[in-house]
């Protein structure tokens, strides 16, 4: 009994309003919440009918929300650069000061470490194998920390990467840096076969890790960016009918051009038969410009 009542309330609230996907979502959301409330009331001992009635009374003016949402849905034409800039500023996430400070310090330290590794590899600075390995290890740890801190930040366009996955990226990158450092040390002293083995092993681990993480990475782009990407697609991707019209127009233009070329060739001589083709190229370009960028964008 409760289901029809809940559905009736929703149908009344949405009556006479065209259901856009957004409104469909809102209706679905309201339905789930209403049913949750009804279930709770029933668990408190109300009869199903009574529960549905109380839930309906409690919910307030759904119609106003629906009308408001329907108005809002038609509001921004979107897709323009101005609309995207507005969206970006609306969803702007400022970097956390602590993260920025940490990244500056870590990056400076990493630069120093990499310089030292490079100097060691070229022989400008003489280091024992042990100290070279320690420098490489420091570089690897710093790389890991930088990657993890950076991936854990929410940005305007992306959600943060989950902790375990961020550490995975950091570890894979660190293995790569350590492999380079050990490889550089081996290049300076070819007698250390252990270094070569470690370099190859770490490189394999790093590549395997990066590939695994890369192929299993889920989309963490925020909803508004994805929507904006769809909105800013060119007209033919957005509107297949326009693409079809363009195809037909093009066919007509080239058929006419070919017919004219043959007619001129037979009538006036083949020397001038190419002129309709030049005209066709010009017409085609104007057609493309007019259809791809119709003059509806004024007021931006």
């Amino acid at each position: 009994m409760t289901e029809p009542s809940v559905h009736r309330i929703l149908d009344q609230a949405f009556a006479g309003i065209e259901l856009t996907p957004e409104l469909q979502d809102l209706k679905e959301e309201m339905r789930t919440n209403l049913l949750a409330r009804v279930a709770e009331l029933e668990s408190l001992g109300r009869s199903p009918d009574d529960a549905a009635r109380v839930a309906a009374e409690e919910i307030g003016d759904l119609r106003a929300v629906v009308v408001d949402a329907a108005d809002g849905a038609t509001e921004p034409p979107a897709g323009s650069w101005a609309a995207q800039a507005r969206l970006a500023s609306m969803h702007k996430v400022r970097p956390r000061p602590a993260a920025v400070a940490a990244l500056v310090v870590l990056s400076s330290a990493l630069t120093a470490t990499v310089t030292l590794i490079a100097l060691g590899a070229t022989g400008a600075v003489v280091m024992s194998t042990v100290s070279a390995t320690l420098v490489g290890l420091a570089g690897a740890l710093l790389t890991c920390a930088i990657v993890v801190v950076a991936l854990r930040q929410e940005t305007t366009a992306h959600y943060p990467v989950p902790p375990a996955r961020a550490v995975g990226w950091g570890a894979a990158a660190a293995a790569g840096v350590l492999a380079v450092a050990l490889g550089a040390t081996y290049a300076g002293d070819r007698t250390q076969d252990g270094l070569l083995a470690a370099t190859v092993g770490l490189a394999v681990v790093s590549i395997a890790g990066l590939v695994t993480l890369g192929v299993t990475q889920t989309n963490r782009t925020k909803g508004w960016v994805r929507d904006a990407a769809v909105q800013s697609q060119d007209r033919f991707s957005r509107d297949p009918a326009a693409a079809a019209r363009f195809g037909i127009y093009s066919g007509v233009v080239w058929l006419a051009a070919l017919a004219a070329a043959v007619a001129i060739g037979l009538g006036l001589g083949w020397l001038w038969s190419w002129t309709p083709l030049v005209v066709a190229v010009l017409v085609e370009m104007v057609l493309l410009a007019r259809m791809q960028f119709p003059s509806e964008t004024r007021g931006e």
Binding site: L26, E29, N33, R37, I59, V65, D68, G72, K92
Partner: peptide
């Protein structure tokens, strides 16, 4: 208690403002 209708309006505002 916040009426659920009020809640939907609030969610819409909050989401619109990011």
């Amino acid at each position: 208690e916040i009426k659920e209708a009020t809640l939907y309006a609030s969610f819409r505002r909050l989401e619109r403002d990011g």
